[in-house]
Design a protein around this nucleic acid. Structure first.
Lengths: 248, 248
DNA sequence: CTCCGCTGTTCCACCATGCGGAACAATGTA
DNA sequence: TACATTGTTCCGCATGGTGGAACAGCGGAG
């Protein structure tokens, strides 16, 4: 179904470049303008894209995309209903921001957030994604990936997020070993300068890693000694979520 | 483009009934099984649906749907970046949960949430929708809709959400008049038994209503006198967001 | 003012490709 | 065992998507 494949390519291109016009999309996807325009019209009739306000010549996503997309997390057998109470408890205990991530390919995607009580916080929007090796949640996941998958991932070049320093795969393996033994991963302002975090992996009923839970805070509230307080707390909370999923 | 239209129908059906099988979808959409299955396969290759864990015979949405859907709110010229700081301030002042809604047709859709500090809270997932007349945000929007649109809306039968009591369109008009004059709408546990809320409308640069901001709390913390404290606060916050949008 | 490069849009003939009935297989229920 | 479900494969027909070409509208440069 060529036309469907094209329609979704167009939709995703609109999503990541909106507001955007016909020619621009056609150029980027290397498709005839005609084809792209036909797709856009169909997408409009389906209610997924709409002309940007005023400019009838640029396109943006509609809210319908959000409504449908938001249901994506319902799939995981009520993960949210199991996770949220645990997250609430964890937030009360730490007073910091708690994030719930799911893995999607080689990215971690934020699917739920309970923000901290203390004033200084970092704001991450739902649906935001980051490469696995850049974030504590991702490292927690990497540490529990099947050997073959991990090897494949480490073949890709990796850099730290902030200072674009390259990461040595062997160093990463060592870090992952440590994460596996102590039960949680850390990220001390390595991805974004003002955010530190500790994270622990969550497993589904088949005992495969599916995501991670994290505690985020400004670096001054999450130093290495501090992370040893929070570390066991996330690790314990994540394990309780895993338990909950297993009982389903 | 028939095949594309069908593919999106199938996708939306999966979204609202997952996990779901071929025959069930075919029955509901009144399409041949073959057609539905072809669509599902294409959707899988596009990365939008996947077989449910274990049961290879049922389908669910993938996280990709969330990632794309989450971008839908970026369209509104940085609404989020303008709204969030105002919402933070409002939450600090009230210590209650702050919701940001956008209108989509005759529904209000939750696009951002900052949860309250106090323990008892009601949890609404992002992307959740509700009929306009059922929620305070929706009533705030209705109160500022162009006459023709309002008339059209009031022609539909309306009931309260909880006790399915019918609502008289004339009563609603009166309530909307009051909302318009005092600047905010209230919902005192009428939709869900444990949630009260006050809401105020947000306008775009063309001065058309696009959404609303609300403060939610359990009824005991948001009684009629209390709502007169919070009322002006939401109303003021919403106006500041509107101002921000106008400057863009 | 005119030209040029860029937009988005319309038209149309060809033929790839999606359509869907029928027939099959793999379940689990009476 | 019989039956009513489910999901899956196959294939011939004609529908409808494809994409080149040609047109129109806009804005900036010379």
């Amino acid at each position: 179904m060529k036309s469907v494949r094209i329609a979704f390519l167009v939709l995703e291109d609109v999503a990541s470049h909106q507001p955007v016009g016909v020619s621009e999309i056609a150029r980027r996807l290397d498709l005839p303008k005609t084809t792209v325009q036909r797709s856009l019209n169909t997408l409009r009739h389906a209610g997924w894209v709409q002309p940007a306000e005023e400019a009838r010549t640029a396109w943006v996503l509609t809210i319908r995309a959000l409504v449908v997309g938001a249901r994506a997390t319902d799939a995981r057998a009520g993960l949210r209903s199991i996770a949220v109470p645990v997250m609430e408890e964890l937030r009360r205990a730490t007073e910091e921001t708690i994030h719930l991530f799911l893995r999607s390919g080689d990215r971690m995607v934020l699917i739920e957030r309970l923000d901290g009580i203390k004033p200084v916080r970092v704001f991450t929007a739902l649906g935001t994604g980051a490469r696995l090796h850049r974030v504590s949640s991702g490292k927690a996941v990497l540490a529990h990936l099947p050997r073959a998958e991990l090897d494949a991932y480490l073949l890709q070049p990796m850099t730290t997020g902030w200072t674009r320093a390259p990461i040595d795969p062997e160093d990463m393996r060592q870090e992952l070993d440590m994460i596996r033994t102590r039960g949680f991963a850390t990220n001390l302002a390595q991805n974004q300068p003002n955010v530190s975090a500790v994270g622990a992996a969550i497993f589904d009923a088949r005992e495969e890693v599916i995501g991670a839970l994290t505690i985020s805070a400004p670096p001054e509230r999450l130093t290495e000694p501090g992370s040893f307080d929070f570390g066991p707390m996330v690790s314990d909370a994540a394990r309780r979520i895993t338990m909950g999923l297993r009982l389903r």
